[in-house]
Amino acid sequence: MANDVQDTTPYNAESLGDRPQRTKREVPDGLWMRCPKCEAMLYRKAVAENLDVCPECEHHFRMKGWDRVNQLTDPGSFEEHFDNLATVDPLDFKWAGKVYAERIAIEQKKTGINDSILTGVAYIKGRRVALGVMVGEFIMGSMGTVLGEKLARLIELATEQSLPLIVVCISGGARMHEGALSLMQMAKTSAALARYDDAGGLYIAILTDPTTGGTTASFAMLGDITIAEPDAEICFAGARVIANTIKADLPEGFQRSEFLMEKGFIDMIVHRKELRSEIARLIDYCKA
């Protein structure tokens, strides 16, 4: 069950350093929770059983990495790859009395995952795919060197084995703690996608709430087909940064899935419970 589902605080696209603060008011601990959208009191277990979607208003809560893998793939079919990679902390990054290397160790222990993406091979309704699932609960799904390396290897694997590539995005953007090397991962993953594209691969990008910053400005926006979950925040610069720059209010629904579809940047908005069948249908059209 996702602990993060109550995250409703708007945050800066680049605010990856610390997790957004919880709005405690909406977070009754224990068995019950309140939907931030319709404000209904929900039984946690019922939400979990409903794929982390509000049974009252269909609000899609954020999913944890492993929950997403399990939700998308055929039971027991996910074979994890590249979980042995770890950051070298290239900058020896420290800030305000905190140490990045320690932060990573804590996140790894908390999540049981080596960094902010899970990569592997799995079946979706019987179709074999290379699957990348970003881990939102690992420093806001931020992109550092390990994410870049895992994703590049996954894309290369998909190229070699001619597998469809599915990447589920949830990200606060590039990870500051690895400096310009995080930025370089945007180009690294895009270069790997170029070769995959040259080889005729099918890449389906799935954008979930939130997909922002350097992640959006690289592999998230490079899908042959791009799917978004309903009402997901998808942007490059965060709303607060834009509002501060232009000193004006932002339009209603700005940077949400529906807005992006209207502007021509995504193909379809798909309810979580339909994702598996939609992916299977698309694969069948593109692969003989």
Binding site: M186, A187, S190, A191, L193, A194, D197, T216, A217, S218, F219, A220, M221, L222, C235, F236, A237, K263, G264, F265
Partner: peptide, 11 residues
């Protein structure tokens, strides 16, 4: 789509 424009250039 500034994100898409940058991403496309990288690729």
């Amino acid at each position: 789509g500034v994100a898409e424009a940058i991403a496309r250039n990288l690729l």
